[in-house]
């Protein structure tokens, strides 16, 4: 029995080592840095400054503005992406719809194409008035052009639309997979019982997808909260800090302005937020319980 236990331990050992090395150690190190004054002017020789960095953040650091931005970014992206993905999955799940596999194959293309290249493409598309979005598409639809340099609203529209394009196929695929795994008989029985399409949706579809939605929501919530590439590439957090999230700001503090300790403090604050929120959601939905 002991041999068996030891044996099991070997299976789990790699992931533990990797986690310790690549997550736990760096996070503790970052936490440590956040209590020092490590930065350009204290590069090799830095000292402890206590909560100084945190005080700076709360006193000068645009904390509330960044929190608001992060929430706009995360919630705005998630709601639209998940909604779009869910709607498309439902549409594709209609058995009497012809050409489903063709549409499916076309609609997953944005996900299949390398994300960071797509971002660079979108950056070009959004240039006002020379990018194709502002030159061709929006005028064709009689919509006003979008210029992230001249308006904060425009900047958010640009960011969230781009993020939707990048991510809706993922949600579509996941929800479609889940819909496909619902036994068809359930619907047939409900139909015999005289339940209309809406009732069937509420009674069968939604409950069956509860787990998937919860799981996808948590992973995507954390991912979007921590995702800095779209903002960094498209608006750079601008105008000013109007579209700057915690992570983008932390990244710029560290890699553009060399304020390593301040960046670490921002990262710590951001992490606390996302982890507490995620844990509350995990707890509420009891999503991990259903998997173990």
């Amino acid at each position: 029995m002991d041999k068996e236990k030891l044996y099991s331990f070997f299976y789990i050992l790699p992931i533990i080592l990797v986690t310790l090395l690549l997550f736990i150690f760096p996070v503790i190190y970052s936490l440590y840095i956040s209590f020092t004054n490590m930065g350009l002017l204290h590069f090799f020789h830095y000292s402890y400054v206590g909560l100084r960095n945190y005080i700076i953040i709360f006193k000068y650091g645009y904390f509330l503005q960044l929190l608001e931005n992060t929430i706009i970014w995360t919630v705005g992206s998630l709601v639209t992406m998940m909604g779009l993905g869910f709607a498309l999955a439902l549409i594709l799940n209609q058995s009497d719809l012809k050409g489903r596999s063709i549409f499916y194959a076309i609609l997953i293309l944005p996900w299949a194409f390398p994300g960071f290249i797509s971002l660079l493409i979108w950056q070009g598309l959004w240039v006002d008035p020379y990018g194709m979005m502002n030159k061709l598409i929006l005028p064709m639809l009689h919509l006003p052009t979008i210029n992230s340099l001249t308006s904060t609203t425009d900047a958010w529209v640009e960011l969230i639309l781009t993020n939707d394009w990048l991510s809706f196929p993922y949600f579509m695929v996941v929800f479609y997979s889940a819909l496909q795994s619902i036994p068809r008989e359930l619907y047939d029985i409900a139909e015999l019982d005289g339940a209309n399409i809406f009732a069937r949706f509420m009674r069968i579809t939604l409950p069956s997808l509860k787990k998937t939605i919860a799981f996808v929501f948590i992973t995507s919530f954390v991912f979007t909260w921590n995702n800095f590439y779209p903002i960094y590439v498209l608006t750079g957090g601008g105008p000013g800090i109007s579209t700057e999230t915690f992570i983008v700001y932390a990244y710029q503090e560290a890699f553009s302005y060399s304020n390593f300790s301040l960046a670490a403090a921002w990262s710590v604050i951001s992490s606390i937020f996302v982890i507490v929120l995620a844990i509350i959601v995990i707890k509420y939905t009891r999503i991990l319980d259903t998997y173990f």
């Binding site: 690549l22 997550f23 150690f25 760096p26 996070v27 190190y29 970052s30 840095i33 954390v222 909260w225 921590n226 800095f228 992570i247 932390a250 990244y251 560290a254 390593f260 960046a263 670490a264 921002w266 990262s267 710590v268 951001s270 992490s271 996302v274 982890i275 995620a278």
Partner: peptide, 11 residues
């Protein structure tokens, strides 16, 4: 894995 890249990059 919820910790962001910015927290782990430099270390």
């Amino acid at each position: 894995t919820f910790f962001p890249y910015t927290a782990t990059a430099v270390p």
